[in-house]
Design a binder for these strands. Structure first.
Length: 467
RNA sequence: GGCGACGUGGCCAAGUGGUAAGGCAGAGGUCUGCAAAACCUUUAUCAUGGGUUCGAAUCCCAUCGUCGCCUCCA
């Protein structure tokens, strides 16, 4: 089945065809590390993790690069305020981000390039652009000459004339034209800087990604991704730089995720409208955030609120409900409805995922299978006869990166070490039930519930799970 | 002001030409000491107004509204 993916460049879904068969190169713009990352960053990382997992499921070998911008104005500013070395500051947040990636069950990228470790490549690229007449040096800065790029604006759909007419009067004499952007910035005393043919300085924001993509993945790549707030100017400028140098199309598919919204506005570091990943994970299972992303379109805005978080949690519980074992002693055969639903789900999920990674559509089919499984269990279907459908749930949720095991808020996992104690309480409670001491019976259940343990009395006895 | 995206039931959200998936919440029921869970039944004509078409949530135009970008931001 052909994979279709939405390309920001063409504003259409396109058939996914890689430069090399069965190999996909993907460069995703990572964070600028000057502060704690928020769940919006996590969303972006999750989206591309899901895409990557899906491509691997479809047999692609994925070369995946995610960068850290570890030198820029914000980092320098922040370092001055905190009176620490900017490199230490960046390092601290990179380490923190790495831990988040791990907690969020993100597959490790092939490479994690950083601007400060690619200075030679960046300088080489800037020089190449100057030689080709696409950039010029001015008082120690180097600017990209936007007018030299005849298709500048093609990604964001802007025309140079429109932008310049609406542009504020820019009194920067160092630039030829107002839209020109810095490839290399001369440094002030005390700022991090590197030797260059144009004096001491540091790279501009956009060039680092062009350079890192070029040197780690090649002149041309299959997927270039990031949040849709990066379309302009960041990705527009990356295209301008790379294509002006190579004369070839840069990325085949430009993929952008929508913004996470909090209180009606995009989460943003600069406005402080955010929930950090740290705060989120202190209270919730990582699967919940992934579920929120999965249950909507990756390109649309995603609302973050107590309510939407709650929805995701419920949806996860529902998926897990399908994995509960068959009723003890059940020996029934697989009902036809379940068999039919397995086929329908398999087909539906495959079609949905191939259609621009439509995870929400795919989940719809999984939930239908959940219902069929639960129905079959109630109907007395034997464990073996449930197993195939349950395996399918695990297989597909696995492709989406869900774990479905329950890790409690404070790290207790699965049935874990608390199990013998809970079992003991259930045993005692069974005795109370026999004696019809309902008040005490209910008290045990309520008290356990407060500790996060949910008791459920069924025909074959009491079962429990983390709630 | 310019560019782009979007507007589906109480909430979240699929569906891009043939009479609306799924989740949550709600109502009724089965089961249960009660509850929970699970299961069954049930709840929409797709922002508004025009147009194209045998037929539109789905295409076109207009209006209203929301969001993003145009300065650093996933």
């Amino acid at each position: 089945m052909t994979i279709k993916i939405y390309n920001t460049l063409s504003r259409k879904k396109e058939d996914f065809e890689t430069l090399e068969p069965k190999k996909a190169s993907m460069y995703v713009c990572g964070p600028t590390v000057y502060d704690k990352a928020h769940v919006g960053h996590a969303m972006s990382v999750l989206v591309f993790d899901i895409i990557r997992r899906y491509l691997e499921y479809r047999g692609y070998e994925v070369l995946h690069a995610m960068n850290y911008t570890d030198v820029d104005d914000k980092i320098i500013q922040r370092a001055i305020i905190e009176e620490i070395d900017p490199f230490d500051l960046a390092e601290r947040y990179i380490q923190e981000f790495r831990e988040h990636l791990d907690d969020l069950n993100i597959l490790p990228a092939t490479v994690y390039p950083r601007a400060t470790q690619e200075i030679d490549h960046i300088i080489e690229m800037v020089q190449g652009l100057i030689e080709k007449g696409h950039a010029y040096e001015s008082e120690g800065d180097v600017y990209f000459f936007v007018s030299s790029d005849d298709d500048y604006g093609k990604l964001s759909g802007r025309k140079l004339e429109d932008m310049q007419s609406g542009f504020r009067i820019d009194v920067d004499d160092r630039k030829e034209t107002p839209m020109d952007f810095a490839l290399w910035k001369s440094s002030k005393p005390g700022e991090p800087s590197w030797e260059s043919p144009w004096g001491q300085g540091r790279p501009g924001w956009h060039i680092e990604c062009s350079a890192m993509s070029y040197y780690h993945l090649g002149e041309q790549i299959d997927i270039h991704g990031g949040g849709n707030d990066l379309v302009f100017p960041h990705h527009e400028n990356e295209i301008a730089q790379t294509e002006s140098l190579t004369g070839k199309p840069f990325a085949r598919y430009w993929v952008h995720n929508g913004m996470m919204q909090l209180r009606g506005a995009a989460m943003s570091k600069s406005t402080g409208n955010l929930v950090t990943i740290e705060e989120f994970l202190a209270q919730h299972d990582a699967d919940i955030l992934r579920m929120m992303v999965l249950n909507s379109s990756y390109r649309s805005p995603l609302k973050f609120s107590d309510e939407t978080v709650g929805h995701a949690k419920k949806a996860l519980d529902r998926l897990r409900s399908a994995l509960r074992p068959a009723t003890p002693g059940a020996a029934g055969e697989m009902p036809e409805t379940l068999e039919a639903q397995i086929t329908a789900t398999r087909q539906g999920v495959e079609e949905s995922m191939a259609d621009d990674i439509n995870t929400a559509g795919a989940l719809g089919y999984l939930f239908e299978l959940v219902r069929a499984i639960n129905y079959a269990r109630d109907d007395g279907t034997a464990p073996d006869a449930l197993a195939e459908a349950q395996r399918l749930i695990l297989e597909y949720t696995g492709i989406m990166g869900l774990k479905l095991d329950h890790t409690g808020v404070d790290g207790r996992s699965g049935t874990g070490e608390a199990a013998p104690f809970v079992d003991l309480l259930i045993e005692l409670r069974a005795e109370l039930r026999n004696q019809k001491l309902w008040e005490l019976t209910d008290k045990v259940r309520d008290s356990l519930a407060e500790l996060g343990v949910v008791l459920e009395d069924g025909k074959e006895g009491t079962t429990w799970r983390w709630g």
